[in-house]
């Protein structure tokens, strides 16, 4: 998650992927080199692990896509002059929504729809991860210096040109920070998807716990941690290198 301490960010940018990959290799190496019984072999093998990791990533990507496709346009609409009075209400609602536990949203969505699977997990997780992007889009556009908007209008830009060429580019750093937070929320919450048969690495954690095979549990937990820390690292890279050049 974003830290506001630039030096801490730099440490994480360099140390995080190294520590994660070394730690992951060490843990998986120890587990794979030990004697594994039938149940362990059925759960700890390359195809199962890659399959569940892929599912986990796919869930996170789907959630992030929904969050960006809904959060940014909604944020833009709420900063237009005619919709501005509604913005505080939407933010209060979103804040209350954020206070709802992710596991509750998942379970409720599953019980109400009576269905299971990928989208039954992805939709409530997306709802849960929406707030950071929505809030940062609104705040990012609101903090654009009004005189810049005036200047844009003054040189004959249309309202949509001002939005595309002034407001949005200036809001990009904050939107990216919100996106990083959303990404981390998405990857973390995706470990809960197995509760509604949505797959992901939570499956290994739960299987290991239910069958009393801690090697399976630890494999799943360590993979989920590594994935979250790596995705967060990618978010940090994006925050650093995708912002418009003049703002870095």
């Amino acid at each position: 998650m974003t830290t506001t301490n630039p030096r801490a960010e730099r440490i994480r940018l360099f140390a995080q992927p190294v520590v994660v990959l070394v730690g992951l290799a060490a843990v998986l190496g120890v587990i794979a080199s030990g004697p594994l019984d039938d149940i362990e072999q059925r759960n700890i093998n390359v195809s199962t692990i890659l399959g569940l990791t892929w599912q986990h990533l796919l869930l996170s990507v789907a959630v992030t896509a929904i969050v960006v496709l809904v959060g940014v346009p909604l944020g833009v609409v709420l900063t237009r002059r005619w919709a501005r009075p509604a913005a505080p209400f939407v933010l209060v609602l979103a804040n209350i929504g954020q206070a709802a536990p992710a596991i509750g949203l998942l379970v409720l969505f599953f019980l109400v729809t009576g269905a299971t699977g990928f989208w039954i997990a992805a939709l409530p997780i997306a709802l849960y991860a929406l707030l950071p992007v929505l809030r940062n889009t609104i705040v990012g556009i609101q903090q654009v210096d009004p005189s810049l908007v005036e200047a844009g209008r003054g040189i004959g830009m249309s309202a949509s040109a001002v939005l595309r060429r002034i407001e949005l580019p200036l809001a990009v750093p904050l939107i990216l920070a919100g996106l990083r937070t959303s990404l981390v929320l998405a990857v973390g919450t995706a470990t809960l998807a197995f509760f509604v048969a949505g797959g992901g690495l939570g499956v290994l954690i739960d299987t290991g716990d239910k069958l009393g095979r801690y090697s399976v549990l630890v494999t799943g937990a360590v993979l989920a941690m590594a994935l979250a820390l790596l995705v967060d690292w990618l978010g940090a890279l994006a925050e650093r290198y995708l912002a418009p050049r003049g703002l870095r």
Partner: peptide, 13 residues
């Protein structure tokens, strides 16, 4: 950044 369910799971053993 660590998923809470993964940390909780890891603490069980």
């Amino acid at each position: 950044t660590i998923p809470s369910f993964a940390l909780l799971g890891l603490l069980i053993p």
